[in-house]
């Protein structure tokens, strides 16, 4: 029943190929899955006491948002699968560039997410060293224990 409704909304008539129907189902499943990924990872960041676990969930959160942004740039071409935004051979006429426009996906979100991944790994390395210094200072990575705890180690590195 769900399948019927989705396909009817997509094309107003019964689709001829199985792939048309599966495409709309796949796009909706993937979107809902990414939203749930974002929510679960955010729950981990907010609720878990261990700093390393917070870091792991932050990595998952960043990756989910990145893949969601790339997914917005994806494209549905009926009857064929879209191609990456890369010319396969050196074009000899302007018409060959026009054929790429008909089949390729949107390159702009990919370029921006490439930048985001680089900045993400840069921030990850800095956060890792901060967690390491926190452990050397307090002797634990659990934030609740560090709040209750006694004096920090005097001879911390």
């Amino acid at each position: 029943m769900f399948l019927e409704r989705v396909s009817w909304r997509a094309s107003k008539r019964r689709p001829r190929y199985m792939s048309d129907l599966l495409a709309s189902l796949a796009f909706r499943t993937a979107m809902i899955a990414f939203v749930f990924n974002i929510a679960i990872a955010l729950y981990g960041v907010l609720s878990r006491p261990s700093l390393v676990k917070k870091f792991l969930c932050l990595v998952a959160f960043t990756d989910s948002i990145n893949i969601f942004a790339v997914f917005i740039g994806f494209r549905y071409t009926p009857g064929a699968y879209p191609s990456p935004p890369i010319l396969e051979a050196i074009p000899t006429s302007p018409a060959e560039v026009e054929t790429l426009i008909n089949t390729s996906v949107d390159p702009l979100p990919q370029a921006m997410i490439l930048t985001a991944i680089v900045i993400g790994i840069a921030c990850s390395i800095f956060l890792l060293t901060l967690i390491l210094m926190y452990y050397r200072h307090y002797g634990t990575t659990n934030i609740h224990e560090a709040e209750e705890g006694e004096e920090p180690h005097a001879e911390a590195l």
Partner: peptide
Amino acid sequence: LIIPYVVIIYSSLLSVFMTYLVV
């Protein structure tokens, strides 16, 4: 053409499961 869409459904659902296990 159904193969890539099936793999999209499969891996997105499994990624939700993996995030749950990580937390």
